[in-house]
Design a binder for these strands. Sequence first.
DNA 1: TTGACACTTGACCGTCCAGTCAACTATAAT
DNA 2: ATTATAGTTGACTGGACGGTCAAGTGTCAA
Lengths: 197, 197
Amino acid sequence: MTIAINTRDRILEAAKSRFHSRSYADVGIKEICDTALIQKGSFYHFFPSKQDLVLAVIDEFATEWAEGFVAEAFDPSLPPMERISYMIDAAYYWQKSAKEKHGKIPGCLFGNLVLEVSTKDDVLRARLNAVFAQAKSRFEEALNEAMERGDIAPLNSKLTAEAMLAYLEGMILFAKAQNDPEVLYRLGPAIMSLRIE
Amino acid sequence: MTIAINTRDRILEAAKSRFHSRSYADVGIKEICDTALIQKGSFYHFFPSKQDLVLAVIDEFATEWAEGFVAEAFDPSLPPMERISYMIDAAYYWQKSAKEKHGKIPGCLFGNLVLEVSTKDDVLRARLNAVFAQAKSRFEEALNEAMERGDIAPLNSKLTAEAMLAYLEGMILFAKAQNDPEVLYRLGPAIMSLRIE
DNA sequence: TTGACACTTGACCGTCCAGTCAACTATAAT
DNA sequence: ATTATAGTTGACTGGACGGTCAAGTGTCAA
């Protein structure tokens, strides 16, 4: 009970970084236990299954991400369209520094999981969708505010927000394929040209 | 030697559809053999390893795809920008019919594999990049022709082509996450607004 | 007819997988 | 002091994994 919370966190941390840099299927419970310096029985005391673990990882990382550089990018004191380019820049620097640390671009944890598990696990798919929905609304708010201020011509903010997020995920996919964060640097600014309606 | 080519094709076919609708890690050699009605020893006569199989699947599907609806979309007799929207439409109908058949959107085989294996296997990553490079040049040619004809304002066709393909992959990712091909229908047309330089 | 070779069979190998469990320890409330 | 419970240990299960192999069978060229 005393260091138990600590144990749970160590499991979560070990799982998060490994799921992100490799894949869900590729990372075993045993490996996570070894990293967290615990035994299997202890793991299953906290998480009834591997699926429960990855759900917790998704929640953890979504919060960390939303309260971290997403909050920083979508700072209300910034002009709305600048928030969006800040977001792209943040993604670029994040992937770049991850590559410097580990030699490989991990891509987006949520995007990786979506393509890996969507056809096999509806519970995971639903959770990942919820994360994307959150991100989408950030873009949408920024677009609405930009329209109100007359910074951009009128458009469908809901659809354009979705398009922008899709474009971001697509760029990250290409960056990962080429193992080159500069893809984001080259293609990033074009997000501003995207518009629907 | 007589029905051997047939056997190889059956292996390839079984592997292709399974890798596409599930994932590389999730589909075992045994399952592929059962589907192709052969034994393991026979499989390893044609493919020295699972990696060799997936490389062959990538090549097969890339060819089938390039000579199939990509060739149809990028028909030189079509106005260049119409080729691009034809390509989006084709992706939409393809995912839609796949969902009707199997209940789930499989997404793009190449995109799926990129996110699954890029950090773990440079050989696969390189092959997938080659496939994307081919597709990119199709978009690029269309953009160049559109510029020559004065259909669109001058832009960097290489980068814009890459951006468009990234956007397509991003839309497919979202469609898979929501298991809804209509995402492509809603977001597809915005590909025309993408431009770099 | 013989030999070479493409192809096929099915048993087998060692390893890893997610998950289980009975037993143990440490803590905190009564 | 007793009891309940949270946390931990490490051995264990059954099955799946990628891959190997010796022993075949069928076909073709010489």
